[in-house]
Amino acid sequence: MKLKKEFSDFYKAIRISSETNALREKRRVLQEDIESKLPDILKKHDISITKSDIKMIDQGSYKYNTTIIDDVVDRDVAVIIPLDITKNDDPRKIKGYLRDSINIASRTVYIKEPCVRASYYENEREWLHIDLPLYARYDEKLYLARGKETSSNFSWENADPVGLNDYLCEKINGNAQLRRIICYIKKWRNEKYSSTENDHEIPPSIGLTLLACDCFSALSTDDSDDDLRSLQKTMKSILNKFSIKKDQNGEIISASLNCYLPVSPYTDVFIKMKESKTHMITFYKRFSKAVANLTSAVQLESEHDAGEYVQKVLGPVFIVPAKEAVAAAAQNRREHSFGD
């Protein structure tokens, strides 16, 4: 299998297998604050809940165990409270109450469209943010509070965070190669979008994860998994899902990719990116380039040359093996000495 050790080393280098104690501690304190303060704040607005009514559940990569090292640790924890959304039809206000319950000096807290974000800084650098999507449990269904604080566009959106967790955990748990492929694709995204600041330009992790699950090709040889070929084939299948339009000169004028949540509200996870044609075209071109590089890597015999193509996709953390001639020459001169 080509580049077996290199992929194995790469995965070890980028992977985060569990929440750190520092992160766990931040999350624990945050949860305590929500549980102790939110009921009182809501009470002032004639909403009655108790501490035990508040449920908090893991979401995102930490739940599916597909977290990779990044500049900022990104943690998603859903906050679920019982709430009559017919009486409280403005989710922005409820998100504001959630923000108020956690807004202390040691965190920077602000409202985003789908969540409330608590950011943590050290030496003026953000090292962690915990996103808290807020769900109302009403009539035995969950509704996600959507809308920025001052936006006129807001709603309670029917959602199923537990169903999404179950769907992805069922796909990923027990499939080590799929888990690795998801991590590689996320690493590709981080490399190619490292200088992009606008979130809407960047393919979201949930989209890449769902696509990888849908398009995954398990590939192995007799002795072990073949991650290079699996990654190439999976990414090629994802690429084939794009719909492309070109002008008379062959220039791409639009690129579209549909990927819907497998649970309520069954919305397109790339909807924000689609607000701009350019974002999707850039996504397509970059993805297409990655597939071309991986295809070259698969076709090449030389491990060194193949590694150089993979490095173009996954970044400098992927270590290119030595040129075969150099390695062979060094092997021929290797000492058999048995030491002292």
Binding site: S18, E19, T20, N21, A22, L23, V73
Partner: peptide
């Protein structure tokens, strides 16, 4: 003992 992203010690 208390790292931010990579856990250096076991639970």
């Amino acid at each position: 003992v208390f790292s931010q992203q990579v856990e250096h010690i076991s639970d």
